[in-house]
Design a protein around this nucleic acid. Sequence first.
RNA 1: GCCCCCGUAGCCCAAUCGGCAGAGGCAGUCGACUUAAAAUCGAUCAAGUGCGGGUUCGAGUCCCGUCGGGGGCACCA
Length: 972
Amino acid sequence: MPEPTNGSPEGAPAHRYTAAVAGDIERRWQDFWDTDGTFHAPNPVGELAAPADAESGPAAEESLAGSSISTEKLFVQDMFPYPSGAGLHVGHPLGYIGTDTFARYHRMIGRNVLHTLGFDAFGLPAEQYAVQTGTHPRVTTEANIGNMTRQLHQLGLGHDQRRSFATTDPDYYRWTQWIFLQIYNSFYDAEQGKARPIAELENEYATGVRSVPDGDGWSELSHSEQQALLDSHRLVYLSEAPVNWCPGLGTVVANEEVTADGRSDRGNFPVFRRNLKQWMMRITAYADRLVDDLDRLDWPDKVKSMQRNWIGRSYGARVQFPVADAGTIEVFTTRPDTLFGATYMVLAPEHPLVDELTAAAWPEGPDGAAESWTGGAETPAEAVAAYRHAASTKSELDRKENRDKTGVFTGCYATNPVNGAQIPVFIADYVLMGYGTGAIMAVPAQDQRDWDFATAFGLDIVRTVQPSEGFDGEAYLGDGPAINSANDEGLSLNGMGVDEAKRTITAWLEEHGHGTGDVQYKLRDWLFARQRYWGEPFPIVYDVEGIPHALPESMLPVELPEVDDYSPTTFDPDDADAEPSPPLAKATEWVEVELDLGDGPRPYRRDTNVMPQWAGSCWYQLRYIDPTNDKQLCDPENEKYWMGPRPAEHGAEDPGGIDLYVGGVEHAVLHLLYARFWHKVLYDLGHVSSEEPYRKLFNQGYIQAYAYRDARGMVVPAEDVVEEDGKFLYMGEEVKQEYGKMGKTLLNVVTPDDMSDQYGADTFRFYEMSMGPFADSRPWATKDVVGAHRFLQRLWRLIVDENTGEVRVSDTDPSEADLRALHKAIAGVRADYGELRFNTAGAKLIELNNHVTKAYGGTPATPRALAEPLVLMLAPLCPHIAEELWHKLGHEGSLAHGPFPEADERYLVSDTLEYPIQVNGKVRARVTVPADADKDAVQAAALADEKITALLDGGEPRKVIVVPGRLVNVVL
RNA sequence: GCCCCCGUAGCCCAAUCGGCAGAGGCAGUCGACUUAAAAUCGAUCAAGUGCGGGUUCGAGUCCCGUCGGGGGCACCA
């Protein structure tokens, strides 16, 4: 190592650990790591495999067959960052520092650790900047990646740089397109419960193993009919269905990207439901596996429940209600047990049966012509038309905010199949076309929405579940015995609990042909196309007849063309009727191509959509494994090593996946659901051995910050606000404090660069990790950072003479007390690092350091036997200073691969124990007894204590509780 | 409206199985160094765990209620 240059501030000792000294150390070690390839993690096979005779660290003796690498591996991953032009603030690297600390700890204890970071670089901001300035998004993106890489590099993250990439690299998106083709060329075999190549389906049709629907033989179908049949089974398909059209973004977006109030996740523009021809991915085929396999994952319950909720599986039954002259209305219900309480039906206004059902005239009878039912219209048709019109002009928001039940009677009655009752059929907008069958049987007694509607329209309410004692609500949703639920065909549910009643009625419906058991999902297929420029082009072309053709693998990647104008045609955000117009459509030379797809050169048109931003992040862990492989997205042997299931370690149900995935909870549904879906398809098709991409997920907290506003409500720069007597002052004026995100608009940004300048990256890392539990959000406080800096200064001072720069360690044996403090710290720190408790690990290091400082700070030298383990244990959190001190202590090379101190049990147990003695739960005395004293001896010692005998005052205690190793409680 | 998480010292946070409320840091106070200050070092002060009940020999920890903060879902039949 080159010697450090000096940069101490005036007056301070020349060799004090200052920001300048830290900066110098950090740059030198970062250079060393880069040159040395310290963090290169060897693969079992391929270009990144370890050289045949290389050692791969201390654990190399237990190695993989045919290779020299350790079977002990760890694959740690951070959620893919988008390279923003704004640069990083101190909140962004929180997760990266945590994973780095975790990875470094495991590397030191001998594991082969894969940790790197790439960039999710397709996306809107670069494109919007391109639209405004004409700068190519690639130029902006690369500049942003450069800046972010610089900021991250100065934090000393131990990444394997060989494995980094951006989703915008053609070498990467070639494989994104390749996976798209795999999915496109597959179908879901419901019987086998897995995806299979579409060629196998074609073969089954052709050989008659599977019969063609509608009876015709495969060979009797025309070529295009055959293709259309196959296309209808593909996992990627074109659909003309209602989609979320967002004119403000000029593109359609997925359900997951629409907020609860009907606006776009990005940009907050209105979103409209519109029928457009679009590419969809059949994620719904995987709904059951996506729900069921959550049980096999080590994920936060919160995220699991959000995914369960999003997939929204519910078990129930489909039931047919006959209608005179109009066939049947089919409904889906989760409560078939309440069928006897179904007193009316409701169809969504858009339901296709409505026209057919609507009666010619209002029926005779007391209700038929009631004003509330007819909406005052002369005929049912008029009422229905008026209601439909009103419903269609209501915005999503109106519909959601206004919960008052509205609707009109169709003039038609249906027959309840269990009791033959004639029940009126309504249309109402509280029933949604998009879920179930778009029609419901209404059971007001057991559903509050139906209760509200029934009350508003004067409909019957029949309880079929006996409410519990004292129930004074309206609809009763709880369990209880069925009542009023018997017919004269021998069916009676009366007395049964809800579950038994459901089973019984479902069997009865099936037996009598009135319905079947069924499962419904909230999850919809994934709308996969975007009408933007900066994304992966689709590897699809259309022939002259407009039939889509997948390109062969050999034509990948399909690269983005250069265009003059990056914007989709821009629209008024409220113009629901505008037509999407993708920017790629303007690149006519790119769109019109002549290709030979097997039957000679022919003209084709390219698909002009691009993939959504989520595509690139659906599979990046696989590319981290084998980033340079140009034959496969990832060699199966490498995938198996890094991600394969390990039942011996993780249990028989282990689905495999990376060992730790850290990121914010905001991706709970979108990214994590899509990535799981793609991974399962790849598993089904035999490309990977793991069934899940992310075995363990951890959501780190956020760093937030205070911001301040003056009397006019204007934000003032947070760094210039001072606190005095509990008041906050800016330029002498009182300002109000608020708490929120760190960002430009709140003038409260603090950057890692600022922290490196003021204290050095190691101080910043240590402070950031010690602020609180990794999972918690907490406020940034620049003034507190100095505590971490002082700690490192004290530690440095124990080993380096501040005035001379000489190393000050001795070979003196540490005392018994020193060794106890040391080994207690080792045991605690190891456990904390392993459980991501970086804050308490740091506290234990400070504690040990304080102990050693007290003992040896005033002496000429610190025992080497204390200094070395302290340095090694610090290394995961503060790697640069640790490397520097390790080097000064006379060691060659890096400590990145260990050793790591091991706790000696001898120093963790002591000969004697001090027991607090409680009297009625309050500590009154303490006794010290031999550590091996039994309960009776401890009790005897406690009762013999003079303070206790005084309190007993000659009496006998009622009870004495002795908790071995803990305390004694005397009950009077 | 429904569901989940969190309330410990002025502030950020510890407390593993229900067992001595304090590991660590910031701020404060006192002292050392300094002509003085900053930086640094040493010492020291500080809450009975949001509130009200309950279970227990014993509750920050478990249960019920309530208040405050954060998050998710919200006509999904």
